[in-house]
Design a binder for these strands. Structure first.
Lengths: 245, 245
DNA sequence: GAGTGGTCTAGACCACTAC
DNA sequence: TAGTGGTCTAGACCACTCC
């Protein structure tokens, strides 16, 4: 009666614990985006479990897009610097169905005090410094997207307009290569709004035109929010696509 | 040299073939939504494979929300008639964060010839008969959603306004219980639009107000499209939520 | 206690990639 | 040919549900 007093704490299978350890290695940047992680056999030896248990852990991390398995080659840390990942988080598509290549123009990149709203979303203290970026993206010469981006200044130190203009490729790839920050997932809140004068100017449309307002919070490893983005899409000739499963 | 002439056809693992067979049973309504399917051991015997192989097949079907595993009880066919599935495909949420209970009012339910656009999406012939339903959904007395729904008349024979009004619960649960049609997944295309006079009337807002236009195609087993829905959301006090993984 | 899904193991063999 | 991930098996044992 006395020796057993089992914790009510819920049962945690071995492979969950292995997932946590692999996650820790990812978070600690022991394995960098794009790099191979040790083989299943090596990991099984390291953690002193069977290959099958490691497999199950890796399977689930791969299902969450944190790892990518490649038969015959190995298992790799997911990265936004891959061709097929360029548009991972972009749900906008032309109505016509053709491919679309957006060109990006950065308007400004400034340091500022975080508003309470932004501080809240980024889990900073009110008044902490953030970097604020404005940009416009165009398709076939027509501006389609106006975006405001907020980043914590500590993590993205030294990011400025020159660095942004020098970079060619997705912003998330830049975050990875310059600031060791890999985006894992994001949440968006979407509304319909009317274009005010400023937006109308940026997007070359009439004031009052309907626009899609997309507020995004993007997270790195460990559910840490590290980017806020408020985008407005001109959806007159493109739409936001979503799959419900 | 002569006896071997391997098909270039790609290799298909056993568990994939089992998935296909289970899928066939679902599609043939051998196991109905909400019902238990045979145990892993029974299926292993039926298909003459090991339990592990059946497990893998079921795992993947469960990941696609076609089956639901319940430890100690069995594996069940997914159904929209479950409490936690009521809002499976509804991404609209109040800005305030509170729960929300929508009340539904059906305006009309008529038979008509399919437009080429609708026929196309439903994979019908132009001119085939469809059922067209209009409805408004309200939150706290305020109309929030106006929806037009198109269904193939053959599959949804006898659906009329009385049947809709008599039903209390999600429309997808009605499809299941009355028409043996379970919705598996859906695709949505979202745009921002301006309310015209008709929409303004339905939603009790000013003409010209921005609205979210959501065009949905919903599919049953076998990727068969069986419902088209064109909804307009008033997003002044609620938003469309999306998770990007 | 019997039955279900869930975990873990060990080992054999297959498919794919690289050298 | 060696090394990686992918498949399949068989069996032991655990966790949960229901009777």
């Amino acid at each position: 009666m006395s020796e057993v007093n089992l914790p009510v704490a819920s049962f945690s299978p071995l492979y969950e614990q292995i997932k946590v350890m692999i996650l820790a290695s990812l978070q600690a940047a022991e394995w960098l985006p794009g790099a191979v992680i040790p083989s299943e056999m090596e990991l099984a030896a390291r953690y002193a479990v069977s290959q099958g248990t490691v497999r199950k852990a890796i399977d689930e991390l791969a299902a969450q897009n944190l790892l990518v398995r490649r038969q015959g080659k190995g298992t790799f840390v997911a990265t936004h610097q891959e061709d097929d990942w360029q548009y991972r988080f972009l749900r906008l598509a032309p109505d016509s169905g053709e491919k679309f290549l957006l060109t990006s123009q950065f308007l400004s990149c400034l340091k500022a005090k975080a508003s309470s709203h932004i501080a809240n979303l980024l889990k900073l203290k009110a008044g902490d410094t953030v970097i604020q970026i404005d940009r416009v993206q165009s398709f076939a010469g027509k501006p389609i997207v106006f975006e405001e981006i907020w980043l914590p200044a500590t993590r993205f130190k030294d990011l400025d307009l020159d660095a942004l203009n020098a970079w060619h490729g997705p912003v998330y790839a830049l975050y990875e290569s310059q600031f060791a920050t890999h985006m894992v997932r994001a949440e968006e809140k979407i509304k319909a709004i009317s274009a005010d004068g400023v937006l109308a100017g940026h997007l070359q449309i009439a004031a009052g035109s309907p626009l899609l307002s997309v507020e995004r919070v993007a997270f790195t490893y460990g559910n840490k929010p590290v980017e806020i983005r408020h985008a407005r899409y001109d959806t007159s000739e493109q739409h936001y696509e979503n799959k419900l499963n």
